[in-house]
Amino acid sequence: MDINLKYFASVREALGRSSETVAVPPEVSTVGALRAFLVARGAPWSEALAEGRSLRMACNQVMCGAETPLSANCEVAFFPPVTGG
């Protein structure tokens, strides 16, 4: 299944790209499993998307948690928390 990825702010800077499309195996069925799959790619994904790192996620432009299911050609975005002033 193909998943469209978007990276924002410091995540985009760490990865050196703002988007990509990846083919994931059938066992990658949630946003959390996708994050783990990307981390397993090694550097720079392992640092930018590390489990202990505070990140926000969205699926099809709706904020979501790790348990959110994926569907073919969905869009998943990763970005740092935003603070206001």
Rank of each mutant, 00 (worst) to 15 (best):
A58E: 11
P81D: 02
S71H: 15
E75Q: 08
G52N: 14
F78H: 01
F37E: 10
G52K: 09
A50H: 12
E27Q: 15
F37K: 10
E67K: 14
P81K: 04
A50E: 12
E67Y: 02
G84R: 04
E27Y: 10
G52L: 05
T83P: 00
P80K: 04
E47H: 11
G32E: 08
V28S: 03
V31I: 06
T68N: 09
V31Y: 00
S29C: 14
L70D: 08
F78C: 06
E47L: 05
A72T: 15
L55F: 02
L49A: 06
T68A: 15
A72R: 15
E75T: 15
Q61K: 09
V24G: 02
V24E: 02
G42R: 11
P26Y: 06
S46D: 15
W45G: 03
N73S: 12
S71Y: 11
S29V: 05
T83E: 02
A48C: 14
A33I: 05
A40E: 14
A58F: 01
A40S: 15
P80M: 08
G84W: 02
C74V: 04
G65F: 04
N60T: 07
R41L: 11
E47I: 04
P25C: 12
E27H: 12
V31R: 09
F79W: 01
R56A: 10
P26S: 05
P25K: 14
V28E: 03
S71N: 11
S54I: 04
T30F: 07
S71M: 13
T83A: 10
L34H: 11
A58H: 10
A40V: 03
V62H: 02
L55D: 07
E67Q: 15
T83F: 01
L34F: 10
V62D: 08
N60E: 14
V62K: 12
A40C: 13
E27P: 01
S46Q: 13
S54W: 09
A58Y: 01
F79K: 00
T83I: 08
S71L: 07
S29T: 06
L70R: 08
A66S: 15
V82T: 06
M57N: 00
V24L: 06
C59R: 15
G42A: 07
S54T: 11
M63F: 12
S54H: 09
R56W: 01
G32M: 09
V28M: 04
C64Y: 00
